[in-house]
Amino acid sequence: MNRITQTFQTLRRQGRKALIGYLTAGDPDLKTSERNIRLALANGLDLLELGVPFSDPTADGPSIQSAGRRALASGANLKQILAMAARLRRSFKTPMILFSYANPLFRYGYTKLCRDAKRAGIDGLLVVDLPFEESAELRAPMKRHRLLFIQLIAPTTSPERARRLLAEADGFVYYILVKGVTGARTRRVPPTRRVFNAKKNIDRLRTCTDLPIAAGFGISDGAQAHEAARHADAVVVGSALVEAARKGRLAELVRELAAAVHGV
């Protein structure tokens, strides 16, 4: 069984929620990045999203944009990132998802990518700008290499559309909590209203799928993670981890988030 599915089954049996962490691979260079990822994995991540840097990250806010710029400036590329994943896999059993924009994967070659990712111990792919309608070309080799295609669902996705997309999805559903890019939120929408909408939308999503639901975008501390974990099966934190890694507070934040999520 795929490590992602297994992790969620185990957690469900234990009645626990999962903490999913995103870090841009190669930020600010491969060596530091690998050290940070090991630190995050050792301090309580249940699942890792390994970010592939891209020159034009149209779905990301300032934190992940800057992380990508630093990673690219240091010369990080997909081949080196997969080699890093393979090294991490030798030390950790934690599920790993490659989180990317379509072009670096397309350029690498979808078939070759799936083969190499599987060999490196990657368990699934999440491609931000590859909607379901354009995904057939990638899903075919993914299926052959038993990699899971993680589907994103947005607040704008209708229940009919969600049902159709999720019929083909696997592992878990990534529910985007807010309309907007990744990272800290503007103050325009009060937090209580956001949580209310999130609860409503996640409940609605439950009627479309039996897959575990992970909620992400805009979660940056333990309190927010705790609130989100009350409604979802997993909480995703990205930009805040990227910032914490820069400030040398990564282990601390991961422990705070893990306690908040696991305490639900």
């Binding site: 931000v128 379901f132 704008t156 309309k179």
Partner: peptide
Amino acid sequence: GGRYVAETLMPA
């Protein structure tokens, strides 16, 4: 061609 955008934009 096609549509390579985040899911948030697909319905729009």
